[in-house]
């Protein structure tokens, strides 16, 4: 009985007072439409397709992002230019299905697909949530300014295979066990 009363005083009443004293603490609420919240650079929001520093499209239509996507909302079709370099002919993301998980960004070998800190994507028509390549492709490099896939991977051009150009190392044979 006495311990119950003591517990009531020390626990419940103190709790009441602690909670009550929050009356003088400033609210954490950000009043959103009037006041923009700070968005962290690595926030996973609206998806973009970026270009490399030379202004070329980064995407090589490898389909890895489409495979990685857990809700299968990426659709793309490969095409080639005259040099045999791969491009997406179309690249379509259905944002009404996308869950902004960022797996596509993780999967992409060329840093082409990136998530940005923009979240204001509401539309009145669901069809407007399907974004095509024109909508996705931006003119900048996104989060990775210096990365250029073909500078790292090398590129086959007419008459010269990978590693045969001047100042170019032979590609690593990934199937060999030797270093």
């Amino acid at each position: 009985m006495l311990t119950l009363i003591k517990d009531t005083l020390t626990s419940q009443v103190v709790t009441l007072w602690r909670v009550f004293s929050h009356l003088w603490v400033k609210a954490d609420t950000v009043e959103y439409p009037d006041e923009q919240p700070y968005m962290f650079p690595r926030w996973r929001g609206r998806i973009i397709l970026s270009r490399d520093p030379d202004g070329e499209e980064r995407c090589v239509a490898c389909n890895l992002c489409a495979v990685a996507c857990p809700v299968d909302c990426i659709a793309l079709q490969k095409t080639e230019d005259e040099e045999g370099r791969w491009y997406p002919e179309f690249f379509r993301i259905n944002f009404s299905r996308c869950i902004m998980c960022g797996f596509c960004e993780e999967a992409c070998p060329t840093n082409a697909i990136q998530l940005t800190p923009d979240f204001e994507m509401a539309e009145y028509k669901r069809q407007d949530m399907v974004w095509e390549k024109e909508d996705l492709l931006i003119d900048g490099t996104g989060k990775y300014h210096d990365y250029n896939f073909y500078r790292v991977a090398g590129k086959k051009i007419g008459g010269k295979d990978k590693g045969e150009a001047r100042n170019e190392a032979v590609p690593v044979n990934v199937r060999s066990l030797l270093p």
Partner: peptide, 8 residues
């Protein structure tokens, strides 16, 4: 309630 929970 919101004042006590530091909301608006």
């Amino acid at each position: 309630l919101s004042f006590w929970q530091e909301r608006l």
